[in-house]
């Protein structure tokens, strides 16, 4: 393809080919300093293609294809090419990842122990992880957490943090503006702006952590906490995994092992400041 870019995010290598220069230029800037795929061989290929040959120039729209493709995925306008690349990479992970059990969760680490946060879209898991990552925790990922069935360890997947709508302003207050990508207005998910994880997150990218606590945050409610039974957590996490079924018995062993050994708590929070305080308090209780 005309333009190409290769990157390794945590343990996973990607190759992204594009019919246009724009998306690849943005990727190069945002992912500057990331390693390249192991042995130069990407685990997954993403292709950003013109839907029809002439659509490279006329009302250009980006079709998201690759090793794994959704036949009915809607194309995006070229101005949202960066989002198309991100969706393409997510799609490869969701449909093709077989080495790790994928949990649709954000994760941060402290003292070698990982905190997982999962929940429905809009629950705030992404913003919370990004915020904690600027306040003494190591950011591991805002979208996918990778559980290794062989070791029970959690591997980081610190891709660009995908900030949506109000979360953009929340983070802009905390973070150097040079770490932000372009503002993508009017995407299918509203306004999106990508944030580059900080240097500490990148430096520790290859260091796994032992899961220590699972939180199910819910934004927009008075502060509350409720311990969850392992069977409830198990069901929620099978639903939050894109490859639980495909992994077969190793996935079963990894997930039952996780929910039996790690406490889980549902937390409601009214705003991010109080959420951070809640998380710190729960973490401290855990350690004592």
């Amino acid at each position: 393809m005309r333009h190409a870019f290769a990157v390794r995010i945590g343990p996973v290598g990607f190759r992204i080919g594009s019919a246009w220069a724009g998306p690849v230029e943005h990727l190069r800037t945002l992912y500057a300093g990331y390693p390249t795929p192991d042995d130069g061989v990407a685990d997954f290929t993403v292709r950003l293609e013109a839907e029809r040959p002439w659509r490279r120039w006329i009302r250009p729209s980006v079709a998201i294809r690759g090793d794994f493709t959704l036949p009915d995925a809607a194309p995006l306008p070229l101005a949202q090419g960066l989002l198309a690349a991100e969706m393409g990479m997510n799609l490869q992970m969701a449909l093709g990842q077989r080495r790790y059990l994928i949990l649709h969760a954000s994760a941060v680490e402290r003292d070698g122990r990982a905190l997982l946060m999962t929940g429905h879209s809009g629950a705030g898991k992404s913003t919370l992880a990004a915020l904690l990552g600027e306040r003494g925790w190591r950011f591991m990922g805002d979208e996918f957490a990778l559980l290794d069935p062989a070791t029970g360890q959690l591997h980081a997947f610190p891709r660009m943090i995908s900030l949506k709508n109000e979360a953009i302003a929340t983070m802009a207050a905390d973070v150097d503006s040079r770490r932000f990508g372009p503002l993508l207005k009017g995407t299918p998910k509203g306004d999106i702006r990508h944030l580059r994880p900080n240097d500490a997150a990148l430096a520790a990218m290859d260091r796994p952590a032992r899961p220590a606590l699972i939180l199910f945050p819910r934004f927009g409610f008075e502060s509350a906490e409720r311990p969850m039974a392992p069977s409830e957590v198990f069901v929620r996490l099978t639903q939050a995994s894109t490859n639980y079924v495909a992994l077969g018995e190793p996935g079963f062993a990894a997930l039952t092992g996780l929910v039996k050994s790690v406490p889980s708590i549902a937390i409601d929070y009214p705003d991010t400041a109080r959420a951070v305080a809640q998380v710190e308090r729960l973490w401290a209780t855990l350690a004592s």
Binding site: P230, S231, F234, V235, E249, F252, A253, T256, V259, K260
Partner: peptide, 22 residues
């Protein structure tokens, strides 16, 4: 079958089908 007792419920992995049952 591989059976793991979670709490009041057991998770069973049924090897011939690859299916999980609670």
């Amino acid at each position: 079958r591989r059976r793991v007792s979670l709490d009041a419920l057991d998770a069973i992995h049924h090897r011939p089908s690859g299916q999980t049952h609670l």
